[in-house]
Amino acid sequence: MAHTVTGPGFRLTERTAGEATVARLHGEIDIRAVLPLRARLDELTAGDRPYLVVDLRAVSFIDCAGLGLLCRARDRIGRRHGRLRVVTTGDRVPRVLRGAGLGSAFELYGSPAEAVAADRGTVLAAARG
Rank of each mutant, 00 (worst) to 15 (best):
D75A: 13
L70T: 02
R74L: 08
E19D: 15
I62R: 10
E19F: 11
A17V: 07
A2T: 15
R11G: 07
R57H: 08
V54L: 15
I62M: 15
I31Q: 13
L41W: 04
G78P: 05
E114K: 06
L69A: 06
G99T: 10
T4I: 15
I62C: 15
A39G: 06
R40H: 12
D42K: 12
A100P: 08
L52C: 07
V96T: 12
T122Y: 07
I29M: 11
T6P: 05
A2Q: 14
A125W: 01
D91K: 09
A58H: 15
T6E: 15
R38E: 10
G103A: 06
T21G: 06
R24D: 04
R57E: 04
G90K: 08
Y109T: 00
A73G: 06
E114S: 07
R95G: 00
A105R: 07
V123H: 04
E107M: 09
G121N: 00
A117R: 10
A118R: 11
L37E: 02
I77H: 02
A100Y: 09
G66Y: 10
V123E: 01
F106D: 04
L97Y: 03
L124H: 01
T13D: 15
R74W: 02
G101M: 12
L35D: 13
A126M: 02
E107G: 12
T13F: 12
L12Q: 14
A115K: 03
R83Y: 09
V96G: 05
D119T: 07
S111H: 04
V87K: 08
L102A: 08
D42R: 15
Y109N: 01
Y109G: 03
R80W: 03
L97E: 01
A73I: 05
G82Q: 06
G78H: 05
C71S: 14
L41R: 02
D42F: 03
C64H: 14
I29K: 11
D63G: 15
V96W: 07
L67V: 08
L124K: 01
T89F: 01
R79H: 07
